[in-house]
Computed example of a mutant assay.
Amino acid sequence: MRVEIWSDIACPWCYIGKARFEKGLAAFAHRDEVEVVFRSFELDPNSPKGSVAPVVEMLAKKYGRTVEEARGMEEHVAASARAEGLTYRTEGRDHGNTFDIHRLLHLAAARGRQEELLDLAYRANFAEERSVFDSATLLVLAVEAGLDEAEAAAVLADATAYADAVRADEREAAELGANAVPFFVLDRRFGVSGGQPAEVFTQALEQAWAGRESVPTSPDAEVCEPDGACAVPGQA
């Protein structure tokens, strides 16, 4: 069975949702027969390359909140991340264009190192003092993930490299009705939206495996939407 996950490195619920999915998958009896593929979804495709803004300021502007209220929203997300055993910094993070990251992830997929690079990028963005919105950092992460430095540098230098693959993923997301991430598709038959609890993912996998007709989802599942906004249940 194949599970495809549409996500963006700038999305905290994708970071958290991946951890929850992995816990749900670990509890699935047929986990060794599941192939996981990560697909591209840009939250803010119109953001100019190289232009970054502090996450807290972006949230305040998006939701019409004060900076202090936006910090509170970040603390809520951080608490959810920490509950999954993830490190999450609430200060000093930036938000920007992620197209180059997605292009590199397609290179990594072609070389069998996609999840390694994705995990490193999530960690750099949410847990460490490293920005993922500049080519120098991305190149370091690519090498840490096991990619050839010269090949990764060539991809970063050529804006057309893997660009079509990123756009194809995004078109597929639209065709599948995905307008927020994370979005999980099981065998191209069932969809699960948002950073669901681990047990929901386990149940979804079991139902997809059995070929049943529906997959339950939580009405309060946390997602990130295009333009970079990441909803916090009860606070959006």
Rank of each mutant, 00 (worst) to 15 (best):
A142S: 15
R65D: 14
A208M: 11
P226W: 07
A81V: 09
E116W: 06
E22I: 02
R171N: 11
D44H: 06
V3A: 09
F99G: 00
E91Y: 09
S80C: 13
G17I: 03
G92L: 03
E151W: 00
R93A: 10
T98L: 00
A180F: 06
E69F: 00
C230Q: 09
K62W: 12
G146S: 10
K18I: 01
L43T: 08
S40I: 04
A60L: 09
E116Q: 15
P197F: 02
E84T: 00
L120R: 14
A142C: 07
E175D: 14
T137C: 02
N46Y: 10
E149R: 15
Y162V: 06
A168T: 13
R39C: 08
R93Q: 12
A108R: 03
V181P: 02
M1P: 07
T202E: 10
I5R: 06
A153S: 11
R2T: 13
Y122H: 11
G228N: 06
E170L: 01
C224N: 01
T90R: 08
G195W: 00
F126K: 08
P197W: 04
N179M: 11
E170F: 01
H76W: 14
G228Y: 05
F38P: 05
V155C: 05
M1F: 08
V232F: 09
F21H: 02
A152Q: 06
E175Q: 15
R65G: 11
K49W: 06
R113K: 15
Q207E: 14
L186E: 00
A60D: 09
L141E: 01
S214E: 15
P45C: 05
T217M: 13
Y63F: 15
L86N: 08
H102A: 13
A152W: 04
E128S: 05
A26H: 05
Y63P: 03
A121D: 06
A121S: 15
L118S: 11
V77M: 12
R189P: 00
L176D: 08
D227V: 11
W6H: 10
R39E: 05
V37R: 15
R171W: 07
E116N: 14
L176V: 08
T137V: 07
D8G: 06
